[in-house]
Amino acid sequence: MLAVQEIDVFIHASHILRRVSLEVREREVVCLVGRNGAGKTTTLRTIMGYHRPRGGGIRFNDVPLHERRTHEIARLGLGFAPEESGIFPDLTVAENIEISTWTRPGGRPAAERLAAAYEIFPVLKQYGARKGPEMSGGERKMLSIARALALDPDMLLLDEPFEGLSPAIVPTVAAGLNEITQRGHAILIAESNIYHVPDFATRLYVIERGEIIFAGRPDDVRKDAAALRAIGGHA
């Protein structure tokens, strides 16, 4: 479904990603784990077209993404929820979610897509007319994911969906993500905390200093000392 092939990404003069390759197949939940500054966010932002890889390529359902602009990539069916949530403060919660149904019309009817998004995080329903700034960090994360979902994407890109959340709300978000995978969407999650990797994750990549140093099943990472050291987990 999504294939990132040996991309090299520079931001100004810095070489941020070095020959990064990763793959997400249909219905998979793939986690990209690494420390802050390892290149997780840059990887996701390069997939979304914010950075142009200097080498290598990215294909999504056999369309080359690295030649497309960001809004075109979104309309191809990639739903992106960034780390800082990116809630539009002047729009109500309902409007924030509805945007995606206007920008990518076609496919399933808007009402059905909105219903599906609210079903994952029912708590958002009660906020309908409220505005973004009145929400807590966890609620913003949920809103950001729901909005990406209303795009009716084939695949979701989530940048640190659990970061800064209170422990009480982490299971709610995790359950929501699980529910999303049950419906057939693939998910790529960037995560800095190995303990936040949900148990329904099918595969795991570890990134360190812009390079992929581990690729495999989540259970196997515990046997890889170097990878484990990079993400600060205990054996």
Binding site: M48, Y50, R69, T70, H71, I73, A74, R75, F80, P82, G86, F88, I99, S100, T103, R104, R147, A148, L151
Partner: peptide
């Protein structure tokens, strides 16, 4: 930037 990632041209 965020608007673009939601498909706004």
């Amino acid at each position: 930037l965020k608007a673009e990632s939601l498909g706004v041209s």
